[in-house]
């Protein structure tokens, strides 16, 4: 398997993308912005289709990723400007999303080889990444991870308790915009692995699973990264020996893990809830 260069590139890019998706995905889940993340990928779709159509000759194989980045970051800035606060963004996101998706459809229809191009953007093309794209992914990963390291605590606090963060004089609008851009760039690269339509499998499901397993953000982020890494590696490995697509295996693995953890979590919290209730009554009696 390792003798094939395309498999090496797939593993290299897939590993980096799993890490950034696992990290930024945690903030997506914490801020209840899953819909926004999905919207970014579809805005990226319009961008990618537009870039392939209008600048395909100029940009070559990099046209889709350049278009993805342009589409999703423009969308991110537009949403950050339209809806100042994190809550109730759904309507604005939906409005921008519907328009860009329609635009994407037009671009892809105008492109001669539209079926193959559309398919790879919609469902991923990790087995087709070149060394240039691997290097580009590396640059993006370094940028994303260093940005997260810098804004980590303010972003975490603003995501948990926006009102108090605002009163403390923290730059809520700036942090919201940084978050949007982080998600936009992460989504643009994650689309290479999972495609536009399956973006949740790396940007949302691993982090949502991790949230059940850890009550401290740092641990949850580590678990989230571990899950997306595991899914990407196993997905690539299994896909190599079968005829089925990588994206399918990744979505199946993260979904199975989510179901398993959710079930276990429910069983343990039910057990814990009843014991806590008894303990709580004891405490109350002492206070009274």
């Amino acid at each position: 398997m390792w003798s094939y260069q395309f498999m090496q590139h797939a593993f290299e890019a897939g590993t980096m993308i799993a890490v950034i998706a696992g990290v930024t995905g945690y903030f997506v889940v914490l801020r209840r912005s899953a819909f926004t993340a999905h919207a970014f990928s579809e805005m990226g779709f319009a961008g990618a289709a537009g870039a392939v159509l209008l600048a395909g000759g100029l940009l070559g194989e990099n046209a889709p990723i350049v278009g993805l980045l342009l589409g999703s970051t423009t969308g991110g800035l537009a949403i950050a400007a339209l809806a100042r606060r994190a809550t109730n963004r759904d309507t604005q996101v939906g409005i921008v999303l519907a328009f860009t998706l329609g635009l994407g459809l037009l671009f892809i229809r105008l492109y001669p080889a539209y079926a193959t191009e559309a398919y790879s953007i919609l469902f991923g093309q990790i087995l087709g990444v070149s060394i240039n794209q691997v290097l580009l992914t590396l640059v993006a990963s370094v940028v994303i991870l260093s940005t997260v390291a810098v804004v980590y605590r303010p972003l975490l606090f603003a995501s948990l308790d926006e009102d108090v963060a605002e009163a403390k004089g923290m730059p809520i609008l700036f942090l919201g915009t940084v978050f949007m851009l982080l998600v936009a760039v992460s989504v643009s690269f994650a689309v290479q692995v999972t495609g536009v339509l399956l973006i949740f499998s790396l940007m949302v499901t691993p982090a949502a699973t991790a949230q059940y397993l850890a009550r401290r953000p740092q641990r949850a982020i580590i678990i989230s990264v571990a899950i997306s890494l595991l899914a990407t590696w196993v997905g690539l490995f299994v896909a190599f020996y079968t005829i089925y697509p990588v994206s399918f295996f990744i979505t199946a693995i993260v979904f199975a893990l989510y179901l398993l953890v959710r079930l276990l979590h429910q069983r343990t919290t039910w057990g814990r809830a009843s014991s806590v209730k008894v303990g709580g009554e004891g405490v109350d009696k002492r206070n009274g």
Binding site: V150, R153, F157, D161, V164, K168, R215, R216, P217
Partner: peptide, 19 residues
């Protein structure tokens, strides 16, 4: 699912940039 202690910690250190 974040524990209460983390929120109180962040109320103190949440303004600090860096990690």
């Amino acid at each position: 699912n974040i524990e209460a202690l983390e929120l109180v910690r962040l109320a103190l250190s949440g303004r600090q940039w860096g990690f």
